[in-house]
Design a protein around this nucleic acid. Structure first.
Length: 712
DNA sequence: GTATAGTCACCTTAT
DNA sequence: GTGACTATAC
């Protein structure tokens, strides 16, 4: 069966799928049929006689790769399972595992997930006696952030701190010592973190020319999806694997770059033609996903960016409803409004074609409560992961020890439930067992009789090679501890363990099972609900699409996130994030702007400023609705957007007047101020309780928390 | 060194 | 309502 490609694709897409034999960069706007293009190119290559084994497809999630391979297989009517597909990290892991000896890991190695890494970092910090008794000392999360940012951006920690966390500059030296200690710890216990996978892979390719040759011979055709979100080392890996003029097709969209915080470098896209000789450039600009009404809005969002994008999406779908901006009275009523909106939309679309998107995982909590109350099933993407739950990690620790007896992180977990054994004793026991210190072991076994059982259990496990089988034994051993450790919700956790066993059955090696869990958190989707509303962070929504999209909490501090705005260019990333969110919608787009946000710190609702990205939008590209105190939602007939701010400010004024705390709008303070990043600026307005709107020459209007300002 | 009860500050985003 | 840290007693 031959496929009529010309009939299935537009001319730019066709050009992309027919390209072969040299590097090409496909700049694919949102909804421009990027996935379709990759899928058809896969199919085209195989149809033209390329063995699937010679193709490498690198994507952002493993699921994306699987779906593309499945679709290509369906088109061709044959199985493409021979194709290598996955994330950079999982591909790197596979190669590293097969060559563990070249890395100096003779007894295997194990992976650290984010939480593991944080705990190691904290341990190192404590062992160096840094920040003792200092409550305001940077937390493990911040410490690891600095360390991995430094590695991903390939700049010194001091430079990262100076640029992105200037308030921590006095700790820069500490951070360096902690980073060094962290590296040493990982080496000593045969542990790799996410970043190590990429860098050790690169090292391996440099040190083992025969391996590089082998990989090059095998992977003659490389495709890389979401190229705008690759970092420097990933770009070098592609270059090294493909060679300067190999058959490599990178697909991406500079306007959708949303992982700069992780070291992603848009320059990779821009430099592609420099790094790869005679790279062909192909642009996909026609949008097949959204209505023109939605694209009008997304084009406006992008137009406000400081970094200009050469992008203007267009669609044939002219008859679309205007995107709606809904102003609920508070974030609590917002949840109610979203539920009502979902109920209405559900009459038109299946639930899984409707998504609610948000900036950060916690923002969906009130909504989750409201949904449960009315019995609407939902599936959440992003936020806490299945395998991060304590009981899952407990059980996995036994498996880790089987593969890497030096894994101290796992030892601590396994030993922790034994009464009388704390972190110190756990370390000692682990070391004694590793070094065969019989004397200490005998002594300790006498003191902690439970240890005997644990060791017997571990010994019996060592015969198990398949993860399903091993997990069965572990679950039996862990059972009594589960009930003891988690008396409140232990049935629920038991169900989680059963689910884990189900997943494990599909794997033939423990290494792959463990790696997939840490490298690809959404395993639980295998038991995904059939028809459920989708809740997702914007980051996790990348590459997906729905008939109807609702975005919540579009207010200053939340979207854009106040945590994300350390440097001027960070605002653009937040803007691109909103762009990604809005371009997920095919037919219907609704933006929620609550007038107040509940503040847990002082347990009151505080007035919120609408997201600056919305304030810029021309009045005719959206329809505005407001929630009244008594009357529910009303359409804003006048569309008097300019009154918006004044109404809000009078609301603010009222609240401030009732507030006994000091610092209301004081005209004498509305002078000049200085900000570490934006420089000197004129204060335009005070936004109670603690923010100012300031005009910074060159940067425009910004809302800044008073703590970050020096008043002049 | 460990267990436990109490106090205080806190939630980006994710391979 | 929780996780991270401290003080106190075993």
């Amino acid at each position: 069966m031959s496929i009529d490609f010309a009939n299935e694709l537009n001319s730019a897409q066709l050009e992309a799928i027919m390209h072969q034999g040299s590097p090409a960069l496909v700049i694919a706007g949102a909804g421009s049929g990027k996935t379709r293009t990759i899928v058809y190119r896969l199919a085209r290559l195989v149809q033209d006689g390329i063995p699937p084994e010679n193709i490498l497809l690198l994507t952002f999630t493993r699921k994306a790769a699987q779906e593309m391979l499945l679709r290509a297989g369906t088109i061709l009517g044959r199985n493409l399972s021979g194709t290598s597909g996955g994330t950079f990290h999982s591909f790197a892991f596979g190669v590293l595992r097969r060559n563990a000896r070249c890395l100096g890991f003779d007894t295997g190695f194990t992976l650290l997930d984010r939480a593991d890494s944080e705990n190691v970092v904290k341990e190192v910090k404590d062992s160096l006696a840094l920040g003792k008794g200092d409550r305001s000392y940077p937390k493990k999360n911040t410490l690891l952030d600095m360390i991995t940012k430094s590695r991903n951006k390939e700049r010194g920690i001091d430079s990262i701190v100076e640029n992105e966390a200037f308030h921590l500059s006095s700790y820069a030296e500490d951070f360096q010592s902690i980073a060094d200690g962290y590296t040493t710890f990982k080496q000593r216990h045969a542990l790799l973190d996410y970043d190590d996978l990429l860098f050790r892979f690169e090292e391996l390719l440099l040190n083992e020319p025969s391996l590089l040759e082998e990989l090059r011979t095998r992977y003659r055709h490389i495709m890389v999806d979401e190229y705008q979100d690759t970092n420097k080392v990933q770009a070098r890996l592609v270059r090294r694997l493909s060679g300067e003029c190999g058959d490599v097709v990178a697909v991406g969209d500079d306007a959708q770059s949303i992982y700069a915080f992780r070291g992603a470098d848009v320059a990779n896209i821009l430099d592609f033609p420099k790094i790869f000789k005679d790279a062909k450039l192909i642009r996909l600009e026609k949008n097949y996903r959204s209505t023109q009404a939605i694209l009008n809005l997304t084009n406006h969002i992008l137009a406000g960016a400081q970094t200009k994008f050469d992008k203007h999406l267009y669609s044939d779908r002219q008859n679309g409803a205007l995107p709606r901006v809904v102003h609920p009275l508070s974030d609590q009523t917002q949840a109610k409004q979203v539920v009502e909106e979902v109920i209405k939309l559900a009459k038109k679309y299946p639930l899984h074609e409707i998504a609610v998107l948000f900036r950060a995982g916690y923002q969906s909590y009130p909504l989750e409560v409201a949904l449960s109350r009315v019995g609407i099933g939902y599936q959440k993407y992003g936020g806490l992961r299945f395998h991060e739950a304590a009981h899952i990690k407990d059980v996995l620790a036994y498996l880790r020890l089987l593969r890497n007896p030096a894994d101290l992180v796992a030892w601590r977990r396994v030993l922790a439930p034994i009464k009388g054994v704390g972190p110190k004793t756990a370390d000692r026991i682990a070391n004694a067992r590793l070094n065969g210190d019989e004397k200490y072991m005998a002594k300790t076994l006498k003191r902690f009789p439970d240890l005997k059982q644990l060791f017997n259990h571990l010994d019996s496990l060592s015969h198990a090679t398949r993860p399903g089988q091993a997990l069965e034994q572990i679950a039996a051993f862990y059972q009594p501890m589960l009930a003891e450790l988690y008396p409140d919700d232990y049935p629920k956790r038991q169900a989680g363990l059963d689910q884990l066993s189900q997943i494990a059955i599909n794997y033939s090696t423990i290494d792959d099972f463990l790696a997939d869990l840490t490298l690809d958190g959404d395993q639980e989707e295998e038991v995904r609900k059939e028809n459920a509303l989708v809740l997702s962070t914007v980051h996790s929504s990348k590459g997906l699409e729905w008939k109807a999209v609702l975005i919540i909490d579009l207010v200053e501090d939340r979207f854009p996130s106040k945590r994300a705005l350390a440097r001027p260019e960070d605002l653009d990333e937040e803007r691109r994030l909103l762009y990604v969110a809005c371009t997920r919608a095919k037919d219907s787009l609704t933006l929620f702007v609550p007038a107040t946000i509940y503040n847990r710190f002082n347990a009151v609702s505080e007035p919120a400023t609408p997201s600056p990205f919305l304030a810029e939008l021309p009045a005719d590209c959206v329809e505005i609705w407001r929630e009244g105190y008594a009357s529910g939602l009303n359409k804003d007939r006048a569309q008097a957007r300019n009154n918006d701010n004044s109404a809000l400010e009078s609301l603010n004024a009222n609240i401030t007047a009732d507030d006994p705390s000091p610092s209301p709008t004081d005209p004498s303070r509305l002078g000049m101020c200085r900000h570490k990043i934006f420089g000197q600026g004129k204060i335009v307005a005070h936004i109670p309780p603690n923010k100012y709107r300031i005009n910074f020459p060159g940067f425009g209007l910004k809302v800044i928390v008073a703590d970050y300002l020096e008043m002049l």
